[in-house]
């Protein structure tokens, strides 16, 4: 799905937990996330802490979108 958006000419960042799958499906900008049921959250933390982590992940995703890449790149958090 990511590839189709990329193909349409829109830069896209894929935020997902199982990054190897993202690599094989051909995403170019990848941000690894926390866990499958809650990629952008962590119910073990307080709401404030959780939101801070989510913010960090989204910031990293935006950073990926503003970074030129030549090949598939994983933006570790």
């Amino acid at each position: 799905m990511v590839k189709e958006i990329e193909r349409a000419g829109i830069p896209v960042v894929h935020m997902c937990t199982v990054t190897p799958i993202s690599m094989t499906v051909g995403a170019n900008r990848i941000v690894p996330t926390i866990a499958i049921p809650h990629p952008l959250g962590n119910p073990a933390l307080s709401l404030e802490e959780e939101k801070a982590i989510r913010r960090k992940l989204v910031e990293r995703a935006l950073e990926a979108l503003t970074t030129e890449v030549d090949d598939q790149t994983i933006f570790e958090v």
Partner: peptide, 23 residues
């Protein structure tokens, strides 16, 4: 097919970038 279709909608709407999340 889904993504190809809505990518066109995004393009027409003037979207500059996409964040796709997966579980």
């Amino acid at each position: 097919k889904f993504a190809a279709e809505y990518a066109q909608k995004l393009l027409q709407a003037g979207v500059h970038a996409v964040i796709m999340t997966s579980t």
